[in-house]
Each structure stands twice: as structure tokens, then as C-alpha cells.
Design a protein around this nucleic acid. Structure first.
Lengths: 130, 130
DNA sequence: CAGAATCCAGCTCGATACTG
DNA sequence: CAGTATCGAGCTGGATTCTG
């Protein structure tokens, strides 16, 4: 995002710069719920592929594989293949990944703090509509 | 999210509680790029429907309408219809919406700070693959 | 001006099956 | 164990058309 308004939004340039707009980029990344989950779990320490698969109940191997690959590409997660038989692969969060994880925590705190208000608002809205 | 790990992730319970998990909920909301854009723009002050439409270049009226409706339902944005002819509708951010907007700023800052590293990592990854 | 309704192309994602 | 490949259902979101 090049020139910014006080809020940091540049509505005119947004689409043109979408590919390089940092906000848009990070949004695309954390919009991926699996990525956020993986990042959160790896915060506890290195985990293997099928361990992740079991701990993130509901994820398909396709999505886990895909998620890990793009997290690795972004430098947020690192992959280490240990030449055992059969092979063992260990994923860990990188220092960069930890900084993102820490930032995302702000959102979780917002959610925990304000969820009740949001839920209440939704109920009122729905009640009014009926 | 009920019992939390130090990182705040409860992998086991995630899917079961997905409907009420605060993290998941806020993620679903900010995962919507249009919602984030609208929230950002409304931070500058009240804006009318077609003004938003023009300033967020690339959004369809369908998505804008949809986005505004769910933001209003969540209590993040308020709608005021002014009985002129033709009718004028003014959207503004609520105090609650401002708190979310402020939190999302943390992400924008992370992105601005670390985007270069991420881009570099991607290039290295792609180069290594080729 | 501010939307609602419809139609449909494209992409996501899960299920399944196979490999080193 | 740690993936890749393929197929198809389903949802997302744009274009278009119409209304109060």
C-alpha cells in the first residue's frame, strides 16, 4: 500500500496494487483458517505431519499439505525431513511466523472481549427482521 | 473457545465449538476483504452507498450490499435512511466497529513491517523449486 | 439513489485412490 | 509416514436486470 490515508486505506489504489498491498496480502494469509490453526499449534513446538492432521480435527490431508506448503513458502513455517524409515517430517514455526502469530493474538483477544456484544447485536437484528 | 492452550488454540475443541469460537468468528469476519475495506473507509466518517461503491473500486453492488448488511448485523456499522427523494442512506462505523478497526491495524502494521521478508522468502522458495 | 433477484462461471475443498 | 493426483459437489462472487 503506497500512499496511505490516515486509516491506511487507499481505496483508489487498492485494486491496482492488490498484488503487492501488504494489508491485502496478510489478509489473504490469515483469512485461511487452517493456516491460522497450524501456526497456533506450531507455537507449542515442532510437530509432524500426521500429528498435525490428528490435532486439527477436520482438516483433510490435501488442505494440510497445501497450507503447510504456502506457510513454508512465506517463511512462516520451516520443514525438516528426518531420514528415518519411513521418513519423518517435522514442521516448526519460524521467528517470523511467531511475530505474525503474536499479532493475530490481538484479534483473538478482540474476539473474546467483544463476541458477546456481536452476538447480542445479531440477535437483536434478527429479532427486528422477524 | 473454552479452555485454551497458552497460545489460545484448542485444537481438539475447535471444530466442535466452531460456531461459537470467538477466534473463528472474528476470522470469518475479517477474512472478508470487502468488510475490512468498508470498515476502514467508514473510519473517515459517514458515507453513502454509492459513494462507497465508487471509492472501493472493484466491488459489485451485490457484495457491497451483502457486506454492509452483515456488518450492520454484527453491530460494527450503523445504517441511517434519510427520507429525501430519492432516499439517501448513510453508513457509519459504530464504536464497536472502531475497536475492531483499530485491532486490524495491528495486522496492517505487521504486513508493512514484514512484507519484504515474506516476499523474499517466496522468491527464494520459488527459485529453489525451479 | 439504494438496493433485490437471477443466472452462471470459476474456484475451493473434501473424498478417494495411489506412491516413495 | 508423508505426501501427490484426480474428480466432482458446492459455494462465491461478478454481470445483468429490475424496483421503490
Amino acid at each position: 500500500m503506497l500512499p496511505s490515508t490516515p486509516q491506511g486505506w487507499n481505496a483508489q489504489g487498492w485494486n491496482a496494487y492488490a498484488g503487492t498491498c501488504p494489508t491485502r496480502m496478510v489478509l489473504d494469509r490469515i483469512a485461511d483458517k487452517w493456516a491460522v490453526l497450524v501456526l497456533g499449534l506450531l507455537g507449542d513446538g515442532p510437530v509432524r505431519f500426521n500429528q498435525l492432521r490428528r490435532r486439527i480435527e477436520g482438516i483433510s490431508q490435501k488442505m494440510l499439505s497445501q497450507t503447510l506448503k504456502s506457510l513454508e513458502r512465506d517463511g512462516l513455517v520451516s520443514r525438516r525431513a528426518i531420514p528415518t524409515v519411513p521418513v519423518t517430517v517435522e514442521y516448526s514455526i519460524t521467528p517470523l511466523g511467531e511475530t505474525l502469530s503474536a499479532t493475530v493474538d490481538g484479534l483473538r483477544i478482540w474476539a473474546e472481549t467483544h463476541m458477546e456484544q456481536v452476538l447480542k447485536s445479531q440477535q437483536q437484528y434478527d429479532a427486528a427482521a422477524a
